[in-house]
Amino acid sequence: MHNLNFSVLLEYWPAIVAGLQMTIKISALSILCGTLMGLAGALAKVSRLRLLRAAGVLYVEWIRNTPLLIQILFIYFGLGVFLPLTPFTASVFALSLFSGAYITEIIRAGIESIQKGQREAALSLGMTDRQAMFLVILPQAVRRILPPLVGQFISLTKDSSLVSVIAVSELTYVAKNIVTVTFRAFEVWLAIAGFYFVLSFALSYSIRNLEYRLARSD
C-alpha cells in the first residue's frame, strides 16, 4: 500500500510558487496579445477588402485545424531556426496566435450580432466606418461576447501547461521535475490540478463582476 505524503509540496514550495508565477505571466501576456490578434482578425474578417477577409479566414482555419502542441513545437524548434526565440517568447507567441484565432471568431460573431441599424445610425450622423465600429458597434459587442471570451481565457490558461514541452519552467514543467525526483506523482499532480482550478475559477469570477457592472446600462 502506497502511503500518501503531501509534505513534498512544502519541501518544493518555492519552486511551485515560481512555476505558478510563470504560468500566470505567460497566460496574462497571451490573453492580452491573443485578444489584440483576435480583434485584428475580426476586423479583417468583416472588412470591405476581400484580401483582408481572405487573410482572416486563412489565419483562423490554419490555426484551428492544427494541434496546439504541434504549433508550439513548430514555433520554438522550427521558427527558432530563423528567429532568436527563447522558450518564453516562443510560448507567448504560440499561445497568443492560437487563442487569437478563436477570439477572432468570438469577436466577429459579436460584431455581426449588433443590428445593422446601429451602424446605419452612426453613418447617417456622418461618422466614418472606423468611428462607427469603435464608438458604436464594438462597445456593444464586447458586452455580448464577454462570457465566451472568458471561456477562451480559461482555456488558454489551462492550455499553457503544454508549453512545458519546450522547457519553460511553468507550473506543469516544475511539477514534472518534482515528480521525477520524489516519485510522488499522485500528490503532486493532484495539487497542480488544484492550482489550475483556482486560477481558472478566479479568472471567471473576476470577469463575472465586470460583466455585472457593464450590464447596468441595459
Binding site: 443590428q115 446605419e120 445610425a121 458586452r143
Partner: peptide
Amino acid sequence: QFNLFPHR
C-alpha cells in the same frame, strides 16, 4: 426603429 446607441 430609433436606433439609439444603447450603451450610451
